[in-house]
């Protein structure tokens, strides 16, 4: 399985993401610059954290019109796994691949600390290696991670089991403690916490590794087992 780490001007977690996939997960991975116009050679798309385009206008707003984003949308429609972490999540929201929007943290502070997350849905291609209700430790690092959606959208998210991770102790004011959601189809996941920073005990936690292992397992079951 081959992953693409999309790099925008201002991305700064691309190296962490690359390291997690290549060295800890042991999969093939390449950096892909934001002006790329073909992602057909990749099986999984990773949008890393950072401050794409300096967070000008709104976090993730400018990135949605990058050349590569129409390819990311295409990959998502084809059912390929797409993971957006932190700024990557913000970009997925701005692009409309996921519902809702991000507001400034309630405290107005940039929060950078480990958070306990509850695995709400273990039936997605991103979370099959976790148990439902499992509490995992994954760090957050954001100033705008205060997830917002209207009542109607929240109802839909719940009905379709799109809420994947919630905070055990809400650090930022997110609606319903939401830390990560998928699209309706379940192949696009956006989350504010950084699983790629929790892939080795040396980093304080390796709870994020199972997320990447889940993606590979799902891909193998779909493509390798069939041949």
């Amino acid at each position: 399985m081959k992953f693409a780490v999309i790099v925008f001007p201002g991305s700064n977690c691309d190296t962490d993401m690359y390291h997690a996939v290549k060295d800890e997960l042991g999969s093939e991975v390449e950096y892909v610059w934001h002006d790329a116009s073909d992602l057909s050679g990749f099986d999984g798309i990773l949008l890393p954290g950072g401050f794409s385009y300096g967070d000008y206008l709104r976090s993730g707003a400018i990135a949605q019109f990058s050349n590569v984003m129409s390819e990311v949308v295409k990959a998502a429609k084809e059912g390929k796994p797409v993971l957006g972490v932190c700024n990557g999540f913000q970009i997925l929201l701005e692009t409309g691949l996921l519902p809702g929007a991000m507001r400034r943290n309630e405290s107005l502070k940039f929060i950078c600390q480990p958070e306990e997350l509850v695995v709400v849905n273990d039936q997605t291609l991103f979370t099959s290696q976790y148990e439902k209700g499992e509490v995992i430790s994954v760090p957050v690092a954001h100033g705008e991670g205060n997830y917002y959606c209207d009542e109607e959208t929240l109802k839909t998210l719940k009905e379709n089991n799109q809420i994947v991770f919630t905070y055990a102790k809400n650090p930022n004011g997110s609606v319903e403690d939401i830390a990560g959601i998928t699209n309706k189809e379940g192949n696009v996941l956006g989350m504010m916490p950084h699983p790629e920073r929790a892939v080795d005990e040396l980093l304080g936690s390796k709870d994020g590794l199972k997320l990447f292992q889940s993606i590979v397992k799902s891909w193998r079951e779909r493509y390798v087992a069939a041949t």
């Binding site: 206008l57 709104r58 707003a61 949605q64 019109f65 929201l93 701005e94 519902p99 809702g100 929007a101 507001r103 917002y148 959606c149 209207d150």
Partner: peptide, 8 residues
Amino acid sequence: KLLSNPVI
């Protein structure tokens, strides 16, 4: 489409 985010 760009200058504002209609969600918020």
